[in-house]
Design a protein around this nucleic acid. Structure first.
Lengths: 121, 121
DNA sequence: CAAACACTTGAACAGTTGTTCATATATTTA
DNA sequence: TAAATATATGAACAACTGTTCAAGTGTTTG
């Protein structure tokens, strides 16, 4: 016969103590959604090139980003919108030009840490 | 008439000094591929939950990860393969059980930095 | 004020991704 | 050795993504 447990709900698992310990410290669904979205913003070659370029040079306009990366203005503009929506970049309009920059220091740090991971492999 | 420039190639851009400065420090195509792939590994809700769980508890088996996240064993197994292929997790086989853990400290750091970015927004 | 310019946008299409379901493998246990 | 268990895998399918192309802003310049 099964031993009685002091827990509220049943769990289909193997090491119940570990599982409960993690569940107690688990974050909300919306947290994981936002976190995944942040990484997702950096998960495309074009976008990560944009971000890396903005690490090297604080402010760049759309045409110059396109020139650096070697794609069409349109493709860059679409990707910049994604980065804007996901709060990874800010922009500053000056006449007909729009200067983009990274939104906060954590983006720089994420690139730096990702770089270390890649270098280690 | 256009001024002669001391540069080797023509560039269709606006602030040529900035563009050249970035181009000189640009990384290789394969670097950006690897970097994007690393972020891509963390860009899905299920995978980022797996990674976060492994931040909280060093070693977890497949069934327990599935129990924590609340998905099928199969879905978790597929995602763990992705994480294995991208070198984000290691595993340790003990009998019929397989214990997964994060591959290097940079993964922990990436989660921590991503968390700070999300908290700031 | 018309042309040129910097950038944005929407539709469309191919390519990629994540889950499910059924089945397979390997190990342990009865 | 047969059944149970822990995990892996392949196919299939819907959902999502990134680019291109054509057309649209809004601003500057001749």
């Amino acid at each position: 016969m099964r031993k009685a447990k002091p827990n509220i709900t049943e769990l289909e698992c193997i090491e119940e103590n570990k599982v409960r310990s993690v569940l107690n410290r688990m974050k909300s669904e919306s947290f994981f959604h936002d976190l995944a979205e942040t990484f997702s913003a950096m998960s495309d070659t074009t976008r990560v090139k944009i971000i890396y370029s903005l690490c090297l040079e604080n402010e760049l306009c759309v045409r110059d980003i396109a020139a650096i990366i070697g794609t069409s203005d349109s493709a860059i503009s679409h990707q910049l919108r994604t980065l804007r929506n996901m709060k990874l970049v800010r922009y500053n309009k000056v006449g007909k030009m729009i200067y983009y920059s990274l939104d906060d220091i954590h983006i720089n740090n994420l690139v730096a840490e990702g770089l270390r991971h890649v270098d280690e492999k």
